[in-house]
């Protein structure tokens, strides 16, 4: 075990995958020589050569298409989109092609691809460096969406994603690349060095896709979330004194309905939370499914915490980002309902 932050853990996953399988390649804007604007691909070009880790032209659709062609040929490309906010030019290739090629060819061509992309807010990124566009992809049959919340999971989930035969959109919460974030913008910077999930094995291991984790056991209310908000939810549970059970979803599609329903049937109350705008967000899907599966166990309406239905603002970031107070308010409101 070594102490790693999330960037180092992701870099280690790519290193292990490339070492183990010559079909694994990685590329993206600035991903080659420079090692990526967030350093996730640092050192890989030097270690594995120009044709295994390389720079791509600034054309997200072309980056996705290149991965599609390579994957159909039998390689396992890991493509990087520099910010999730810039994945939209690639939407046609991802939604119309990557997600459907196995289906439309009846399995004659497959798409073992990982599209990695830094994701989420909390970094003063403004409108185009803060987005959480996961719901655009959870709506698409044929692709899976994975979002880790710590270095250990980041490496294990990325290795599992690279080894998966299905296309995966792998969103990396950039706010927690260097340390966990509890939602308090004015709090001291935290480091992964002091966090249990900052202990990462150097070699190969995987974290199972489609499997959620109960990261805090509790009896009063279930909080289902993912990414940065896992840490906000944990901090809110401690601060509020409400014995919340916090579930880190990790894989959004397919999500782990069993772990969720088991918890909600125990607590009888549920909060679903995401950073993305509220309307049609992934939290809406969770709320609908939990309502369907746990209706007779629910003692209060399911509460949804989300970003506002506005573009992500710059100056008023902390009025937008769902911080601790919103979680605490929701926990109180849900548990006070008779």
């Amino acid at each position: 075990m070594t102490k790693m932050n999330m960037i180092q853990a992701l870099n280690s996953a790519l290193d292990v995958a490339m070492e183990n399988d010559p079909n694994v390649l990685c590329f993206g804007e600035d991903a080659g020589y420079f090692g990526g604007v967030f350093r996730v691909t640092a050192g890989l070009q030097k270690k594995y050569g120009l044709d295994r880790c390389f720079d791509a032209p600034i054309n997200e659709a072309a980056i996705a298409a290149m991965a599609i062609g390579m994957a159909a040929k039998g390689l396992r490309p890991v493509a990087e989109i520099q910010f999730a906010d810039y994945i939209f030019p690639a939407i046609d290739q991802i939604v119309s092609e990557m997600s459907r090629i196995r289906y439309r060819s009846a399995g004659q061509f497959t798409q073992p691809i990982v599209v990695r992309s830094p994701w989420g807010g909390g970094i003063r990124g403004g409108q185009t460096h803060s987005m959480s566009p996961e719901a655009f992809f959870t709506h698409v049959p044929g692709i899976k969406v994975v979002i880790p919340s710590n270095p250990y999971d980041a490496k294990g989930l990325l290795l599992a994603s690279i080894e998966s035969d299905d296309p995966i959109i792998f969103f990396e919460p950039k706010r927690i690349y260097n340390g966990p974030f509890d939602g308090q913008a004015d709090g001291a910077l935290q480091s992964w060095a002091n966090h249990a999930k900052g202990e990462v094995p150097e070699g190969h291991y995987t974290v199972e896709l489609g499997k959620a984790e109960v990261v805090r056991e509790g009896t009063a209310v279930t909080v289902v979330t993912y990414g940065t908000l896992v840490h906000v939810a944990l901090a809110a549970a401690e601060k509020s004194g409400i014995d919340a059970e916090v579930i880190d979803l990790k894989t959004l599609t397919p999500y782990d309905i069993e772990t969720i329903t088991e918890s909600v049937k125990k607590t009888g109350r549920c909060i679903v939370a995401n950073e993305a705008p509220r309307t049609s967000s992934f939290a809406a899907e969770l709320a609908a499914q939990i309502q369907e599966d746990c209706f007779w166990s629910l003692e209060a309406p399911i509460h949804r915490i989300a970003g506002w239905d506005t573009p992500y603002p710059h100056a008023h970031e902390w009025s937008y980002f769902p911080g601790q107070q919103r979680f605490i308010n929701a926990m109180k409101s849900v548990t006070e309902t008779v």
């Binding site: 659709a61 072309a62 298409a65």
Partner: peptide, 17 residues
């Protein structure tokens, strides 16, 4: 594919492969 032109850059990816 019904989506026009998508195969053009995909062909490049295959060729690189």
């Amino acid at each position: 594919s019904g989506n026009l032109g998508t195969q053009f850059p995909q062909a490049v990816g295959w060729a690189m492969g």
